Lab assay of single mutants.
Amino acid sequence: ETKSLTLVLHRDSGSLGFNIIGGRPSVDNHDGSSSEGIFVSKIVDSGPAAKEGGLQIHDRIIEVNGRDLSRATHDQAVEAFKTAKEPIVVQVLRR
């Protein structure tokens, strides 16, 4: 079962304390579909994302501050987090 969660993150020394993997390839599949998503791959101990109620590894990131990342490329997702103003509201899907 997958549930949708909304989390609020604040940077600590400029970092949110997690890494992402995935992202849509720069070239779409011929039918326009994509199974890619942006997923949390690593969480830094005691970083902002590790706090209670924070992110978990394998969370799929859907949205950052209202910006849809469900079909974003990896670079677009990285840029969305880099430029996001605080508080950073992150919507994820968690299995």
Rank of each mutant, 00 (worst) to 15 (best):
R95Y: 07
P87H: 02
A50M: 08
S4H: 11
E36T: 12
G17D: 05
D59C: 00
D28T: 12
T73D: 06
A72M: 05
H74L: 15
V92P: 02
L55A: 01
I88Q: 00
A84M: 02
R11G: 04
Q91K: 15
S13Q: 14
V8W: 08
S46V: 07
T73G: 05
G23M: 09
I61W: 02
R67E: 10
A50L: 06
A49L: 09
N19G: 07
L7P: 02
L9P: 02
I21N: 10
F39L: 06
G23P: 15
G14S: 07
G66S: 04
G23T: 10
R11P: 05
R11T: 05
S70N: 05
V89R: 12
D12N: 10
G17V: 02
D12V: 13
I61E: 00
S13Y: 09
S15P: 03
K42N: 15
R24C: 14
V44C: 13
R71H: 14
L9Q: 00
E52V: 13
A84I: 03
H58V: 01
V44T: 12
D45A: 13
G22N: 12
R94V: 01
A50G: 12
E63W: 06
N19T: 13
P87V: 02
I43T: 04
S46I: 06
G47S: 13
S41C: 06
L69D: 03
T2C: 07
S15G: 10
T2F: 15
T73Q: 04
V44Y: 14
I61T: 01
K85P: 09
V89Y: 08
D59Q: 01
D28L: 10
S70I: 05
R24V: 09
P87Q: 02
H58C: 06
R95Q: 15
I62Q: 04
V92Q: 02
R11H: 04
D75M: 09
V89H: 12
F18C: 02
I20H: 04
R11V: 03
P25N: 11
K85V: 11
T2W: 09
D59Y: 00
D12R: 15
S41K: 05
A84D: 02
V27H: 14
G53T: 08
D12H: 08
V78G: 03
S15V: 07
V27Q: 14
E36F: 07
T73I: 01
E63H: 07
I20T: 05
R71D: 15
R11E: 03
P87F: 00
A72Q: 01
K51G: 14
D59I: 00
R95M: 07
R71M: 10
D31P: 10
Q91C: 05
S35F: 08
R94G: 01
R71K: 13
D28A: 09
I38M: 02
G23R: 09
I88W: 02
I62C: 06
E86H: 05
I57E: 12
I21Y: 10
G32T: 11
S70G: 05
E63C: 11
G14R: 05
V40F: 03
A50V: 06
S26W: 09
I62S: 02
G54V: 07
T73E: 04
G23L: 06
L9W: 05
D31V: 10
